[in-house]
Amino acid sequence: MGVMVPFNPVEPFLRSERMPHIWCSGCGIGTTVNCFARALAESKLPLDKVAIVSGIGCTGRVAGYLNLDSFHTTHGRAIPFATGLKLANPELTVVVYSGDGDLIAIGGNHFIHAARRNVDIKVICINNFIYGMTGGQVAPTTPVGATATTAPYGCFERPFNLPYLAESSGAVYVARWTAYHVRYIAHSMADALRKKGFSFIEILAPCPTLYQRRNKLGDGLETMRYYKQHSVIRHGANTRDVNLHFQGEITLGKFVDIERPTLQQTMEQRFRQVLRDRYAG
């Protein structure tokens, strides 16, 4: 080999033998994985102390492609698995990387309770507004008026406002970005990796095969251009006001960054108080 063998900065974090991955052309998930690799590199965390947990779905594949201790759990159960992992081995940095259908629909109950208890895990939610892998069904994040395979006349249900849901449930760090805002995502992920407590980052990403195509919104690149033109960054915005509307303005930013004792800390404090010398913790 020559004197200089440059390598792709994301390569040490990938299981290269599994490439090319299954994500469609124009899908934003791979872009967020780049940002995550940069954030991990910046955090200088020892990689054998980082675990990544995914549920089912297109984003659920991230765990399988990253060269970390990774767990691909059953549908919706990434957060309870991660909670157990963190409590059993508190020195791990546990990251949940999954989609909106997995985390917020079938796993919605786990999501609110992990935030309420302030479990020290970092939750990265790639929101493509539908169930991608199973064929584009309507999800609790589908905006009113958007068409999905199970909403042929347009969705008429009010979607979740994820940052508001996370903040009101008790998350200590809440941010939202789009797949276009790569540098912001990387910084935000690095922030979350340093943060103690339930951190939540929502990333809007194009699903050109199902969401964009069914709604005649063009391809992935067209959507990225849309994100570029119609996003407004308002750090510290009230999460009540950051609802997403079908093809409306997108409010981005770091909305919440507070301190609150984690589940581990409150548990230890309580046990020490009650059990005194009998608590081995």
């Binding site: 020559g2 004197v3 200089m4 440059p6 792709n8 900065p9 994301v10 390569e11 990938l14 490439m19 090319p20 991955h21 994500w23 124009g26 899908c27 934003g28 998930i29 791979g30 872009t31 994985v33 780049n34 940002c35 940069r38 790569v182 540098r183 990387a186």
Partner: peptide, 21 residues
């Protein structure tokens, strides 16, 4: 480009102009 590429297919580097490479 490396940060955007969803397929990990491209990346940019800076080569010092004096180096043998």
């Amino acid at each position: 480009c490396g940060l955007y590429c969803p397929d990990f297919a491209i990346y940019g580097i800076r080569v010092p102009v004096e180096s043998p490479a």
